[in-house]
Simulated assay, not measured.
Amino acid sequence: MTGTRTAPRALATAAAALFAVTAVPPAAGAQEGPKAPEEFVSLRSVDPTILQDMRYATAHNFLGERVDGYRQPLCVLTRPAARALHRAQERLLRRGYSLKVYDCYRPQRAVDQFVRWARDPDDQSMKAEFYPRVDKSRLIPDGYIAEKSGHSRGSTVDLTLVRLPAAPTRPYRPGERLVPCFAPQDKRFPDNSVDMGTGYDCFDALSHTDDPRIGGVQRANRQFLKRTLGDLGFVNLPEEWWHFTFTPETFPDTYFDFPVSERSLSGAR
């Protein structure tokens, strides 16, 4: 609770310095693609204090490369979902925590790339971190990878909690030695989040929110996140402690494919 009155200002300053959105230029000749409906906004325009670590705009993910459609490291959501996260953040700041998002709206082209990757048995470059105990051929049958994702509807978000003041994190270095995502927190890839028992996108049963092998502080952290978001209309996916969908969804039956970028959003919002 110490210092919570100054947390929003300090966090906003840190977020601006450490997590500023920078353009990732598309390939030469690439077209801008479809625009987002008016109901979509950038999360930063609604709450600039929420930390953003947009993994699919980087090489630190289970593919090992920037994912199709992520032109900027930007969280885009439907306006109701973004506003609900803002309300959650207000509660958490008073208790000395911040939300940190890993993924928000996800273009269908990115989901299609996930499926192509999952069907390629030769690409195992990130196995040691993200799915060390699962045979890649099982990722689709076991439900870790799907041809459609709720993220493409715009009201689903992957996130975690960070204790304030947020510690700095180093960038992933392609080719560095990988550590299993379920290793002890001080052994796996450094992340300034609280200990949830596994890293983000850990394809393992230990990622199930209520896995009985997760106890103590790790279980308490998961339940704190789930309870805080649940009070504001977010439903957790039981197989992934980080995955939440705001309900009722603005677009419950539509899967969008506009790129993740400021230019995809209508007007200056």
Rank of each mutant, 00 (worst) to 15 (best):
F182W: 09
P80M: 09
N61G: 07
G154I: 10
D210R: 01
R163I: 11
Q113S: 08
K35T: 13
V24N: 13
R119F: 07
A14M: 12
Q218Y: 01
A110C: 11
C104M: 06
V115W: 03
G199R: 03
Q31E: 15
A183R: 03
F256K: 03
R109G: 14
L237A: 14
Q185D: 10
E262R: 15
R9S: 15
L139A: 07
I214K: 00
T4Q: 13
I50V: 15
L229I: 09
R83I: 14
A167F: 04
T58H: 04
L18T: 13
R219L: 15
F40G: 02
S42M: 08
L43Q: 07
L161Y: 01
P165T: 08
V162S: 00
A36N: 02
D210K: 00
A146E: 03
S266E: 14
Q185T: 03
D253M: 07
Q89D: 06
S155C: 06
E39T: 15
Y200H: 06
P37L: 03
R5H: 08
V101S: 05
Q113Y: 02
D122Q: 11
V46L: 05
Q185L: 12
A17L: 15
S45Y: 04
A14P: 02
Y255F: 15
R95P: 06
P248H: 06
R116W: 02
V21R: 06
S152M: 06
A146W: 03
P37E: 01
W242H: 14
Y97T: 06
A118G: 12
P34I: 09
V76H: 01
R106H: 15
G69F: 05
P238Q: 06
K127L: 03
R119E: 12
R188T: 06
C75G: 04
R177V: 14
K226N: 10
F189Y: 12
A16N: 09
Q185E: 13
D123H: 05
A14N: 04
G230E: 04
D142A: 13
G96F: 08
P48M: 08
V179D: 00
R219D: 05
E129V: 07
A183L: 11
P141V: 10
R222Y: 00
K226L: 14
P190Y: 07
P238T: 00
R173F: 04
Y144E: 04
P190R: 02
R153T: 10
G154P: 07
P259Y: 02
V46T: 08
L225R: 00
G267E: 07
G216C: 06
W117N: 05
T250K: 10
S42E: 10
L93P: 05
G96A: 12
P174W: 04
R95Q: 15
A23I: 12
R170P: 02
F62Q: 02
S125T: 14
R263I: 08
L99D: 03
T198K: 02
F114Q: 06
A81N: 04
L161P: 01
A183I: 13
E249L: 14
A10K: 13
S149N: 04
A23C: 08
T13G: 12
R213I: 05
